[in-house]
């Protein structure tokens, strides 16, 4: 009784906040509604005895992710959404892809048979006493170790990409060869001496001088 009441309260909050994400007048309020959605999902996890999932949800999605989003919004400016939503083609693509995603998730949920995993009273008691961390850890490092590692490689790639994008220029170990990133594209530049050595003459590239001496390079690298 008590738990189902809580479920309905959180379900209402979650759906209301999800609508808020779509209908909010500004991006900032959308992001804030998203925080509420994540927190109510954490509450669903708690109601199902999944305490580790709930705290991870709050830690990773509820705060970590949304803080990054808030950062992005605050640095780029909080523009009203109505000006940007005009293009019909974009709306069409967005609606088709979101309906497809919803269908995918919904069919996978329908295909999942909860009765495969009968919850015994003893199991629930153990969950209450020890938490679900032990069970999750054992599964992650035995049965699901491959997906876990693949996900970590994905995250590593994202991290390297983020570092690459956030650094405007970075230099290779060799003096004279500069990699610079302009508008998201990697652009190698040779210094004048190197171009002479290789016999490479290009008027366009020659306009941009890379720091030639080691001293200058060191100065640029150090903050």
């Amino acid at each position: 009784m008590f738990e189902s009441t809580l479920f309905w309260i959180f379900a209402t909050v979650a759906i209301g906040a999800a609508l808020g994400v779509v209908l909010a007048p500004s991006v900032l309020y959308s992001a804030l509604s998203l925080i509420v959605v994540f927190f109510s999902i954490a509450a669903f996890f708690l109601l199902n005895n999944a305490d580790f999932l709930a705290t991870a949800q709050v830690l990773v999605y509820g705060v970590g992710l949304t803080i990054v989003m808030l950062f992005g919004i605050m640095f780029t400016g909080d523009t009203p959404l109505k000006e940007k939503a005009g293009k019909l083609g974009r709306l069409l693509i967005a609606s088709i892809s979101s309906v497809a995603l919803f269908a995918l998730i919904f069919t996978s949920v329908l295909g999942f048979n909860i009765k495969q995993f009968p919850a015994s009273a003893q199991w629930i008691r153990e969950l209450h006493e020890q938490g679900s961390t032990l069970a999750i850890g054992q599964l992650l490092f035995s049965k699901y170790v491959l997906p876990f590692e693949v996900a970590s490689i994905l995250l590593l790639g994202a991290m390297i990409g983020a570092i690459l994008l956030s650094k405007k220029t970075f230099t290779s170990q060799e003096p004279g060869l500069t990699f610079s990133i302009q508008e998201g594209r990697l652009k190698p530049t040779l210094s004048a001496e190197w171009r002479k050595d290789v016999g490479f003459v290009d008027a366009e590239v020659a306009t941009e001088e890379a720091p030639s001496s080691t001293e200058e390079l060191k100065k640029e690298c150090s903050l």
Binding site: F52, T55, A56, V58, L59, V63, T66, I67, F71, T133
Partner: peptide, 20 residues
């Protein structure tokens, strides 16, 4: 709680949203 420590980190991270 069996996960008291995790709850500690989850909760203490929330207040950042308030500051921002």
């Amino acid at each position: 709680l069996p996960l008291g420590l995790l709850v500690l980190f989850a909760l203490s991270s929330i207040s950042v949203i308030g500051l921002v």
